[in-house]
């Protein structure tokens, strides 16, 4: 079964996942990106095989960056792109509907300022919620700034990846953070957008500190209740070989979870080498979402207090901390 990284810990903790053989775990760990392996690990065991790994980059319209006079060869901050879009009458597209994608954005913003949403997650429900840190406030500041700027898309509070892609492809498209699949997204429908499409490292939350792009992807696990565990594990080994990862990446636009997977020849035809390098660099620097069996609660509670984006202000991180803590201790309904 395919498992999204934030749920890996929840499944593993509940005993739903069959143990993988030790030698296989080692092989997969060696093969995968560090972040991918970390996201697949629970209590020192690699519980799922990383299949594809996704990350976000900053996509921009070359014409807009040029008009705004923004030098995209240097790392840019959120403040800069919001400013650039506002002055040129364009939009910054993000994912901020009330769903997991919004938690992805918040997590990347917090991590980009050197913080974390939660610490000591091995304590389960007693983890320390740290979204109210300095970094948490920086993240809230960026969201507040975008939501109240001219650069906020009309559908900010309901935008997922698709809506963001549509905004970016429209007349007001300027900047967007989105997953790797965007490179081929406009090939058939809007070739003129593709011609104008630039890419850069994920924007920085604070000036002078490296950004931490989001990490996404799919790991494949074997159900502990499967009747055919051995065959399933064999199938899994085949599916997650670097070559299979490359084939999948070429077909779906979801990038491999291992450096070896990037060597698949067809990928190099579709994607420019600099973009493949950027993807790998981003994956190395990525900040996975907090690994906790309670991630779905933490994320849900976080979204609940940060949504809609226009309501976010300096008090939001403190409120979110209190709410997440209450939800984890079942004092509050999510």
């Amino acid at each position: 079964m395919s498992i999204d990284p934030p749920y890996t810990a929840e499944f593993a903790n509940a005993g739903y996942l069959a143990e993988l053989p030790e030698d296989m775990q080692q092989r997969l760990r060696d093969q995968a990106f560090e972040g991918a392996a970390a996201a697949a690990t629970w209590e020192d065991q690699l519980v799922v095989a990383p299949f594809w790994s996704n990350t976000q980059v900053l996509w921009y319209r070359k014409s807009v960056a040029q008009e705004a006079g923004l030098d995209m060869t240097q790392p840019v901050t959120w403040d800069q792109i919001i400013e650039a879009a506002s002055t040129t009458g364009k939009k910054v597209a993000v994912q901020s509907n009330k769903y997991e994608g919004y938690a992805v954005w918040i997590n990347a913003l917090v991590a980009g300022a050197g913080g974390e949403i939660a610490e000591n997650t091995e304590k389960g429900a007693d983890a320390t919620i740290t979204v109210d840190s300095e970094a948490g406030h920086e993240a809230a500041r960026v969201i507040e700034e975008l939501a109240h700027s001219e650069a906020a898309p009309a559908d900010l509070s309901v935008a997922q990846e698709g809506q963001a892609g549509a905004t970016f492809g429209s007349d007001v498209g300027g900047f967007m953070v989105n997953w790797t699949y965007i490179w081929t997204n406009y090939d058939d429908s809007q070739p003129e957008v593709k011609d104008d499409l630039g890419f850069a490292r994920y924007p920085r939350t604070v000036d002078g500190e490296d950004s931490r792009p989001p990490y996404g992807g799919i790991g494949i696990g074997v159900s502990a209740f499967s009747d055919h565990k051995e065959q399933a594990i064999e199938a899994l080994e085949c599916l997650t070989s670097p070559e299979s990862q490359g084939v999948n990446a070429d077909l779906t636009g979801n990038m491999p979870s291992s450096p070896a997977g990037y060597d698949y020849p067809a990928l190099k035809e579709t994607y420019p080498q600099e973009l493949l390098d950027l993807f790998q660099e981003s994956l190395e620097a990525a900040a996975p979402r907090t690994v906790s069996p309670y991630w779905s609660d933490i994320s849900g509670a976080l979204q609940s207090r940060f949504h809609p984006p226009s309501s976010v202000d300096d008090d939001t991180p403190d409120k979110a901390k209190k709410f997440i803590t209450d939800v984890l201790h079942q004092k509050d309904l999510l």
């Binding site: 698709g162 549509a166 492809g169 429209s170 058939d188 429908s189 809007q190």
Partner: peptide
């Protein structure tokens, strides 16, 4: 078509 709805 998909292209039409994706573009709005």
């Amino acid at each position: 078509g998909a292209a039409e709805t994706a573009a709005g």
